[in-house]
């Protein structure tokens, strides 16, 4: 089994961190092989940012893939650029707070996540990436959810422990949305 994922959005939306949380969890708490490849423009904020995540049971060849079975889009340009990278039967996670477009193709699963709004309601717009990551884990079940929460505490809580409750709530809200969409 190989899970391939592109997370894409603007710089500053936490796209890389969303991918990394999944990767750290895979590396540190499972026996799976995992690679992470970031791709971004020269801007710190507002530029394009995307990352390629591959999680598999066997050694991973290409860490950057042009067909994926999962796509997380945080903004409209990313939606437009990557939607055709999805294989038939693939999963599209849309941050509907920002992306108003919907795919014309009908051979993919669309999981709508109002991540931006949820994040603001929880008290910090910054945690929208964790809502998205939660939805991915909830829908696909690729990684153990509690391990992801622990990774969030470990990696993000190290510098900002006061954010732990909001971060956890954001991830759990995402999980809920993902699981509900699976049914």
């Amino acid at each position: 089994m190989k899970t391939t994922l592109i997370c894409a959005g603007f710089g500053g939306q936490g796209v890389m961190v969303a991918g990394q949380i999944l990767c750290y969890t895979a590396c540190e708490t499972t026996d799976k092989f995992v690679t992470f490849f970031p791709s971004y423009g020269v801007e710190m904020r507002g530029g394009t940012a995307n990352c390629y995540v591959v999680i598999g049971d066997e050694e991973i060849g290409a860490p950057m893939v042009n067909h994926v079975n999962n796509l997380m889009v945080f903004n409209t340009p990313s939606f437009e650029k990557f939607v055709d990278y999805l294989e038939p039967g693939g999963n599209l996670f849309i941050n509907t707070s920002v992306v108003k477009e919907r795919p014309t193709r009908t051979d993919i699963n669309v999981i709508e996540v109002d991540a931006g709004t949820i994040a603001i309601e929880l008290g910090s717009s910054k945690c929208l990436n964790l809502v998205m990551a939660g939805a991915f884990v909830g829908y696909t079940g690729v990684l153990p959810e509690e391990n992801c929460v622990q990774t969030i505490f470990k990696k993000l809580g190290a510098k900002r422990p006061e954010m732990n409750p909001i971060n956890e709530a954001a991830f759990r809200k995402g999980l809920e949305i993902g699981k509900a969409a699976r049914k």
Binding site: Q20, C23, C27, F33, V34, T35, F36, F37, P38, I60, P63, M64
Partner: peptide, 9 residues
Amino acid sequence: GFTGTMMEP
């Protein structure tokens, strides 16, 4: 640049 910026165990 790929090997430099990618992450892996």
